[in-house]
C-alpha cells in the first residue's frame, strides 16, 4: 500500500459518485438520520426506565456513540464488501484477479460510499454530547482512549465485515446473513453487554469481539468496574484485539479466495 494506487482508486470512485449530486446529498442525510433514530430509541426507552443493564442514559449514549462512529467508519471502508456476491455472479471478481494487486483491498477500494460519512458525523456529534454529559476523569490517557476507541472499533467491525462477506464465496445468495452479523454486531455493541446473557453474550462479545468496540473502553473511560467481574485492563486492549481480528479476517479472506479459485463458478 506504500504507493498511491489506492488513494487514486478511491478518488476515482468519489468522482464517479459526484455525478449524482442530489441523490448523494439525500443519502448522506438519510444515513445521519438513520443513526439519529437509534439514539431516539435509546432516549425513548430511558424516558420509561432509569437504568438499562445497570447503566444510566448518558452512559448508554456514550457506548452507542462509540459503536455508531466505529460502525460508520467501517461502513465507509469495508461496506463495499456487500457487493461481493454481485462481483462473483457477474465475473467482476475475475477481473480483479487479473490485476497485480490483492483482491481484498481492490474490493474495498472499488467503491467508497462517502454518503456513509453522514453516519460518522452523527456518531461523532453524539460522542461529543455523551463525553460532556458523563463524569469523566480527563487525562492524556483518557483522551487517547477516546481517540483510539472508535478507530479500533472500526477495525474490529471491518474484520467482522470481511469474515461475514467471505461467506459469499460459498453461498452467493446469503448476503442477508452477512448483514445480520455486521449490523447485528452494531446493535449489540450499542448497549452494555450486561443486557445480554448466555451464549448470545459470549458469542457476540468475545468470538465476534464486540465487547471491545464500546463496552470495555467505555467502562475504562467512565472509571467503572465491570459488573460482570472482568479485569480493568480489558478497557485498554481494544487496539490489540482489533489487530488480532484483522489478522483473522485476512486469513479467512485468503482461505475464501483460495476456495473460490479452487472451486470456481
Amino acid at each position: 500500500m506504500g504507493d498511491r494506487i489506492y488513494p487514486k482508486l478511491v478518488a476515482a470512485r468519489l468522482r464517479g459518485q459526484m455525478s449524482y449530486r442530489v441523490s448523494f446529498a439525500l443519502e448522506c442525510l438519510g444515513q445521519a438520520f438513520a443513526q439519529a433514530i437509534e439514539l431516539v430509541v435509546i432516549l425513548v426507552v430511558f424516558s420509561r426506565v432509569d437504568a438499562l443493564g445497570g447503566f444510566s442514559a448518558s452512559e448508554v449514549v456514550l457506548l452507542y456513540a462509540f459503536a455508531g462512529t466505529a460502525f460508520g467508519i467501517a461502513d465507509l471502508v469495508a461496506g463495499q464488501l456487500n457487493e461481493l456476491p454481485d462481483y462473483i455472479r457477474t465475473g467482476k471478481f475475475d477481473v480483479l484477479l487479473l490485476r497485480p494487486l490483492g483482491t481484498l483491498p481492490q474490493v474495498m477500494a472499488s467503491d467508497v460510499r462517502l454518503r456513509r460519512a453522514g453516519r460518522v458525523a452523527a456518531g461523532i456529534i453524539t460522542m461529543a454530547f455523551a463525553l460532556t454529559h458523563n463524569d469523566i476523569a480527563w487525562s492524556p490517557w483518557t483522551v487517547l482512549l477516546v481517540v483510539v476507541t472508535p478507530l479500533a472499533g472500526a477495525v474490529i467491525f471491518s474484520a467482522v465485515w470481511i469474515v461475514a462477506c467471505a461467506v459469499s464465496f460459498w453461498l452467493v445468495e446469503a448476503q442477508e446473513l452477512a448483514n445480520a452479523v455486521t449490523h447485528g454486531s452494531n446493535s449489540f455493541t450499542s448497549y452494555p453487554i450486561t443486557v445480554y446473557s448466555g451464549w448470545l453474550r459470549r458469542f457476540m462479545a468475545f468470538v465476534v469481539p464486540g465487547a471491545f468496540v464500546a463496552y470495555y473502553p467505555g467502562l475504562a473511560l467512565l472509571g467503572r468496574a465491570d459488573p460482570l467481574g472482568g479485569p480493568a485492563f480489558l478497557g485498554w486492549i481494544a487496539p490489540l484485539v482489533a489487530l488480532a481480528a484483522a489478522c483473522v479476517a485476512g486469513l479467512v479472506w485468503r482461505f475464501a479466495v483460495r476456495h473460490y479459485r479452487g472451486t470456481g463458478s
Partner: peptide, 27 residues
C-alpha cells in the same frame, strides 16, 4: 426459488430477534 436467500434472511431475523429480546426484557 430463492431458498438460500430466504433462509439467510430468516437467520438474520432470528439473530436480531434475540438481540432485541434481550434489550426489551432488560427494559
Amino acid at each position: 426459488n430463492y431458498r438460500q436467500a430466504m433462509f439467510a434472511g430468516l437467520a438474520a431475523n432470528v439473530m436480531f430477534g434475540l438481540l432485541r429480546t434481550a434489550v426489551m426484557i432488560a427494559v
